[in-house]
Design a protein around this nucleic acid. Sequence first.
DNA 1: ATATACATACCATTTAGTTTGTATTTAGTT
DNA 2: AACTAAATACAAACTAAATGGTATGTATAT
Lengths: 211, 211
Amino acid sequence: MPRPSKLSPERGNARTRLLEAAQDIIRSKGFAATTVDDLCKQAEVTKGAFFHHFDSKEALGVAAAEYWTETTSAFFAAAPYHLPDDPLDRVLAYVAFRRAIIVGQIAEFTCLVGTMAQEVYAISPDIREACGKSIFGHAATLEGDIRAAMQARRIQGDWTPESLARHTQAVIQGGFVLAKAGNDPDLARESLDHLDRYIRCLFNVPDEVEA
Amino acid sequence: MPRPSKLSPERGNARTRLLEAAQDIIRSKGFAATTVDDLCKQAEVTKGAFFHHFDSKEALGVAAAEYWTETTSAFFAAAPYHLPDDPLDRVLAYVAFRRAIIVGQIAEFTCLVGTMAQEVYAISPDIREACGKSIFGHAATLEGDIRAAMQARRIQGDWTPESLARHTQAVIQGGFVLAKAGNDPDLARESLDHLDRYIRCLFNVPDEVEA
DNA sequence: ATATACATACCATTTAGTTTGTATTTAGTT
DNA sequence: AACTAAATACAAACTAAATGGTATGTATAT
């Protein structure tokens, strides 16, 4: 709940500004290399404000993961890939959507919680937990469409909707790693093309002719 | 080339010990959170030795990526997945091998260069470059078998051997990210099962009945 | 004799976190 | 409606510890 003050009316409160700075900076430098001063400078607040809102840098990490979960949940809920009538079309539209939003600088389209989880999984259980909830919670939003598609097309394999949903996230995260290692966003798109082909294969759908 | 001294005959030289410590510690804490003192303590050498062998912490990062490339190259070259006569069998054996070596603690089976690339891609071009060479160099070792399998089975899709080889690495890296986020190695194995299924699908091979 | 491979002690800077102070908002009382 | 008290949301200056790196010395190998 933002509290506008007379001195800084429209710029939002310090907490939100710090969380948004965290998204930017941590995605480009990683969590450990991001200093509290970095965050304060970018958010244009002082350290007093930082430690008023967060008990520690680790607490900011947890809050940043939770904030990421909130904002991305809303973003994906409002996305157009839910529109098709056929559930399999919705699943494929999701993959196409994930591919379509790979634009701009690497730090702009990669995943905060994937980056943080990989980095701090062993040293901060709290941050790891918050990142895990974010990733697996998002994966779970795909299960319904996958299950409905399986039933509609009478598909029965030795895999589950839950498993395929998680796999989509693994491919997305892995694509980000390759894009970073090769400094080329196309590497992330490429893996989503393979994922699209895999899902069509699982559901016996012929590949679409690509434009 | 280890240089045995009279004081420490069999323990290997400081450089190698530092590079091996780097593999362990960076895979569990990440590069930025790993301090020079951490490395020296684990390697049982002093800071003087560290900065004798490496100009900076960043230089150690580059050397660690290169050392990783050397040791893993030898490891995979000697692995049994090259044995099958049929090239597709070799590709599938590779995936099975990657699955089989997911054992023990997460930091023990995950990838140093994937972790480092994700973390430092924006702040250290040298480390990123070394990590990229490692990942894409390893991917390239799969291209021959994939290409041979395509020819042997007269497969022609809108994908290339290079692309599929990279995709295998994306799935592996993504599996590691999920395993870390969920604190469960099974998550990494699960994605390799999907990758196996995908490759069989691309080559029109029926799924094997799982044990 | 010289270069290599370390060890020891030290240093400047950076870093997360603290202390203290103050403007603004909210709640309670009259 | 006016006043007060307490809580909130910051700002500024400071601190102790950690960190990457250096300066210097020494044993070993060539």
